[in-house]
Amino acid sequence: MARTRQPVSPRQKRQERAAIAFMLPWFIGAVGITLGPMVASLYLSFTEYNLLTAPQWVGFDNYVAMANDPNVAKSLAVTFSYVLIGTPINLVIALAVAMALNRGLRGLNFYRSVYYLPSLLGGSVAVGVLWRRIFGSDGLVNQFLGLLGIESDTSWVANPDSALWTLILLHAWTFGSAMVIFLAGLRQVPEELHEAASLDGAGATRKFWHVTLPLLTPILFFNLVLGIINSFTTFTQAYIVSGGTGAPAKSTLFYALYLYQQAFGTRHAMGYASALAWLLFLIVGLLTAVNFWASRKWVHYAS
């Protein structure tokens, strides 16, 4: 991080000044709103803090307690399977649908809106009810299986073996946001390149792999990084479907859900919750750093 002294050209100076102007809102936000609370939470992770009385410094106690807390390992396992399975499925579907809804068909505006609908429902209370209508013991899935001659009265949402899978499906079903970003990204793929490729006799598959996908990599990278981060911190859907308990038998005890239980549940152990948060921060930060490092090999920028 040693600062190298170089003669500063007038152009560079001008650019520095412009940067200050452009970055000013962000600087204010980072210093005034984001970083203060972040560091405060780091401090709190070394305290016992029940929100009702001043925090007490306890050193590394919270971090030691985490190592002995079976729920930490359990919730990490749940979260990792969700991230590793859910994120790729979500991205592949989003990209495939974005390609299908990109251009060349009537009524695309309508289709796009319909496909985005589930993402609009987002975290509403109604989602929990709807999900039970679909995956409950007398829900749609079982009715459909009945039509196929398979008798089932399993409650897929409340069975420990399948509950997590229904949440992965819920995740896949709300691919709308990633789809929208892909659609916007596809706009940046110049049509001329496609035409040039077509003239060269390239088929649709070849065009996708050799023209579209490389130009889309900055956006794919964005969706991948954010998809992973968001899956790690996923909360709302798990909260709504299990009522915040991580039931059945802790099979949907997501890390962020456990953190919330600790922070705002009956214990309101904000110090411990802060320690949990900073562990997740380290894990996600490490993965993101690896992602950025690997991106040099496969992400193509226009410049």
Binding site: G128, R132, G136, D153, S155, A158, S242, G243
Partner: peptide, 18 residues
């Protein structure tokens, strides 16, 4: 009930109406 059906019925958002 089966355990999964019972937990489903008792889970949040359930309310007495369901």
């Amino acid at each position: 009930q089966a355990p999964d059906a019972a937990i489903e019925a008792a889970s949040a958002g359930g309310g007495i109406e369901q």
